[in-house]
């Protein structure tokens, strides 16, 4: 056994160089330093509450990032992600209000089971995702434009449906974000995120769909020639993305205790940024679930550390923007360096 371990070490570290290591992990290292500084600056950073908070925020965004990842891996994108999450949150909001709430959206509606609301929100957003997929694969509209269109359509649809801010949520709905397991330590949200993450890992690595997705991202023409049903695969990817955005949106609503048409605004860009930070290549064909976990985590840590450091919110946006550009630049460097 020791010899085997030695071999592993040799293989892993034979070409090890500090410079390479720093470049490859620059962002993560910077963020760890930032977290340490934040912890020193404000003791509350390292607290159970903060970590619970981060993990709950992480979960909803992770679902949205998982949805976008398939689009990115096939060299596409999905700009409608945030608005779809918003629509999901609004659908859940209108159906999960307490019966005595004065501004109840459906005044005569009884108590709908939460699971049914999840399913309904997912079906509706899945429908919009399906439209994305059909437009991208059959009408050949570039994903950037196609999903820019649906982004606007979904926003309009959401405004038509529930123009007013929603509130007065049922306790059992908002309680989703405050349910913990194992002695008040593991949030329900994280369990959901882990289950969905495991499902997506399985889908990406152990099924034909996953292999076809990477093949299309690697070389769409070659995939077509090899008999891959490109249109079907793309439609599944965009539809599944819609389902995930809706689920993310329902969770966001539970956490916030309310929703408006602007819920989820800008989340698509955050999701795309997180995926890229996590190594999902912008040139297609590359991307792992573990990378997406890291990417979303890094982004959440970044935001929270900045809050704890008391950085001006406007400056926080500037730093986030710089980090996104830096992440892609460093990502490309890895490939350039190999030349």
């Amino acid at each position: 056994m020791p010899e085997k371990l030695n071999g592993w070490f040799e293989k892993k570290f034979k070409d090890f160089s500090i410079g390479d290591f720093l470049i490859k992990n620059a962002l993560i290292i910077i963020l760890i330093i930032m977290a340490i500084v934040a912890a020193i600056y404000n003791g509350n950073f390292v607290s159970a509450n903060n970590f619970k908070n981060i993990s709950i925020n992480f979960s909803a965004r992770f679902l949205i990032a998982l949805g976008v990842s398939g689009c990115l891996i096939t060299r596409g994108t999905d700009l409608s992600a945030g608005r779809m999450a918003g629509l999901g949150a609004c659908i859940a909001g209108t159906l999960l209000q307490t019966s005595d709430y004065a501004q109840k959206f459906f005044p005569n509606l009884g108590d709908v089971p939460i699971l049914a609301v999840f399913v309904l929100a997912m079906v509706i957003c899945g429908f919009f995702g399906l439209i994305n997929g059909i437009v991208v694969s059959y009408l050949k509209v570039p994903p950037f434009i196609a999903t820019l269109g649906t982004q606007t359509i979904v926003y309009g649809a959401c405004q038509l449906y529930s123009p007013m801010p929603l509130g007065g949520y049922r306790k059992d709905y908002t309680a989703l974000s405050s349910t913990f397991f194992l002695g008040n330590s593991i949030p329900l949200f994280i369990v959901i995120a882990a289950l969905v993450g495991a499902f997506m890992w399985f889908l990406y690595n152990k099924t034909r769909h996953g292999k076809y997705m990477y093949a299309i991202g690697g070389n769409e023409t070659a995939a077509e020639v090899s008999g891959v049903n490109v249109s079907k695969t793309l439609i599944i990817i965009y539809t599944l993305a819609g389902l995930l955005y809706a689920a993310g949106g329902v969770l966001l609503g539970a956490k916030a205790g309310g929703a408006t048409v602007n819920t989820g605004y800008g989340y698509e860009l955050e999701a795309i940024a997180s995926c890229t930070i996590g190594g999902v290549s912008t040139t297609g064909g590359i991307g792992k679930i573990s990378g997406i976990v890291i990417g979303v985590l890094v982004f959440e840590f970044l935001k929270t550390s900045m809050q704890f450091l008391g950085i001006n919110p406007a400056v926080q946006y500037i730093i986030q923007g710089v980090v996104i550009i830096l992440a892609v630049a460093l990502d490309l460097r890895k490939y350039l360096a190999k030349k």
Binding site: G218, N219, T221, A222, V225, G284, G285
Partner: peptide, 9 residues
């Protein structure tokens, strides 16, 4: 290259 291999796979 154009329609045969999947370079990154």
């Amino acid at each position: 290259r154009g329609s045969g291999i999947f370079g990154v796979l």
